[in-house]
Design a protein around this nucleic acid. Structure first.
Length: 156
DNA sequence: GCCAACGTTGGC
DNA sequence: GCCAACGTTGGC
């Protein structure tokens, strides 16, 4: 079995929250419009990779649960939809510019792991989203970081 | 290819 | 709403 990779996905809960994902069970993670993130999805993300779901741009930013990648990256349908805020008139179905992955709900943390709590953990000093100026909506997570955050989320 | 202007992100 | 940080755009 290939090595399992771990990721952190940011989402604005006003737009799509962990509760929405729990309700839907599975969703197409659309709207990535950054080339670095697209390349991560295309080149590094695999079925079975696990995801920390993080709420950003909200009253209490933090990690709120986990999910799993259901398959390889595929063209993001929202880029072709003129009614979508993610519509990209410069992209065409024969040469799609943007990709999406399918993500399935796994767990909702008993306690949200707030940004402040993560900053307070020495073991998370290198976590990508805590680094100054980080703006990527998807970043890799190490197994050690994953276990710290999941343990905090379990309320232990 | 440089780089200034502009737009976006996201915490506070 | 402010602002730092960074990506993208477009004139040259």
């Amino acid at each position: 079995m290939a090595t399992r990779q771990l990721w952190l996905f940011k989402t604005e809960p006003a737009e799509y929250s962990i509760d929405d994902l729990a309700r839907d069970g599975c969703t197409v993670w659309t709207g990535v419009r950054n080339y670095q993130v697209r390349n991560l999805m295309r080149d590094a993300m695999k079925r079975g990779d696990e995801v920390l779901v993080y709420h950003s741009s909200c009253a209490e930013p933090g990690a709120v649960g986990t999910a799993i990648i259901e398959g390889e990256a595929h063209p993001d349908p929202s880029q072709f939809d003129p009614a979508s805020p993610y519509h990209d008139p410069g992209s065409s179905p024969t040469n799609p510019r943007w990709l999406a992955v399918d993500v399935a709900f796994r767990t909702r943390f008993a306690e949200p792991v707030t940004l402040a709590a993560m900053r307070a953990m020495a073991g998370l000093a290198e976590l990508a989203i805590l680094r100054r100026g980080n703006r990527l909506s998807i970043t890799p997570v190490t197994p050690k970081e994953w276990s710290i955050i999941v343990r905090l989320g379990s309320g232990v």
